[in-house]
């Protein structure tokens, strides 16, 4: 079974250690021991939710708050720019979800 890595027991997300698509993942690391079913393709280095996360609830990785949810996120969901925002950086909300490329700079 492919794996995702949970760094801290308080974390509600884990990081994929290889690309995966609609399959169960073994959660390893300090918050590990369970499995989580993902329902879409998630790439190496990206995050999966280990619990259901309500809008405005905090996203925790490394045991610290790395952002807040902007939409309801289900357990096993991909956590990224489309459903999580920084508490500091506004610009990143306008970037392309998959490539991270900015859409706010005119090329004219």
């Amino acid at each position: 079974m492919k794996q995702c890595f949970s760094i801290h027991p308080k974390d509600n997300v884990a990081t994929l250690t290889e690309d995966a698509d609609s399959e169960p993942l073994l959660v390893v690391g300090s918050g590990g021991g369970t499995t989580v079913q993902i329902e879409e393709a998630i790439s190496l280095g990206h995050k999966v939710a280990l619990a259901a996360i309500a809008p405005d609830a905090v996203i925790i990785k490394y045991g610290v708050i790395i952002g807040v949810a902007t939409k309801p996120i289900e357990r096993g969901g991909w956590v990224h720019l489309h459903n999580c925002r920084s508490l500091l950086d506004d610009r990143s909300q306008g970037l392309d979800l998959r490539t991270g490329i900015p859409k706010d700079t005119p090329y004219e």
């Binding site: 990081t15 994929l16 790439s43 190496l44 280095g45 990206h46 995050k47 996203i59 990785k61 490394y62 610290v64 708050i65 790395i66 952002g67 956590v79 990224h80 720019l81 999580c84 925002r85 920084s86 508490l87 500091l88 950086d89 610009r91 990143s92 970037l95 392309d96 998959r98 490539t99 991270g100 490329i101 900015p102």
Partner: peptide, 27 residues
């Protein structure tokens, strides 16, 4: 960061799975 309105995070960081500057900072 507030003055230049740019946090130290780039398109490649986001494409590689980092979602926020807070997350990148811890790493």
């Amino acid at each position: 960061c507030k003055a230049v309105r740019q946090y130290s995070v780039s398109p490649g960081n986001f494409a590689g799975g980092l979602t926020t500057i807070e997350e990148k900072s811890m790493g």
